[in-house]
Amino acid sequence: MKKMPEINSGSMADISFLLLTFFLLTSSIDTDQGITRKLPPPPDPNADPPEVKERNVLKVLVNKSDRLLVQGQPIDIRQLKDRAKEFLTNPQNDPNLPEVEEVTINNLGTVRTTKGIISLKNDRGTSYDMYIQVQNELTAAINELRDELSQQRFGAKFADLTSTTQSEAVQKAIPIAISEAEPEDIGGKK
């Protein structure tokens, strides 16, 4: 039998390298991540807005120069997380902070929850960066509360809970109680 000459496959590597660089250039590795929120359905014009007691609402306002106003007092963004946590837990049963109630939740037993809602309102001129910082701090407050509860009951952080029943129970005990006010034009168009 005649010996076949070997096909030179050395250039094959070069070709695949070319393909590789092409894909590296045209694609992006950045995984999409961000803060997830659920928008409320559009308001029913006939229905009255639900009655919420004054003590159950934490009013957070952001004006067009990116300054924060919480319950009528100007505060720094770094204080917002602790303010929100204190508001959502009401540790000392303060009559000015939201009503506390004991709720029984499946898989979790009796939990001390509050009826607190954070009402966030921003101006049309607020920068998106500031808005995200505020949302981030509020989310951080809720996440920390969830972590504390889940650490106490299940011995693991909320994000590390493996069973969905457990994480659903924690979610139910500490919901994302952030309500965004219907937009209004306060500071004028910009």
Partner: peptide, 26 residues
């Protein structure tokens, strides 16, 4: 650097369209 006005308008439209699940990319 975007002002919230545009974002709010978009969010209102999304609510009307029934796309409630949103994600602020960060």
């Amino acid at each position: 650097l975007t002002r919230m006005g545009v974002v709010t308008d978009v969010k209102q439209e999304l609510r009307k369209a029934g796309a409630f699940k949103i994600n602020y990319s960060t």
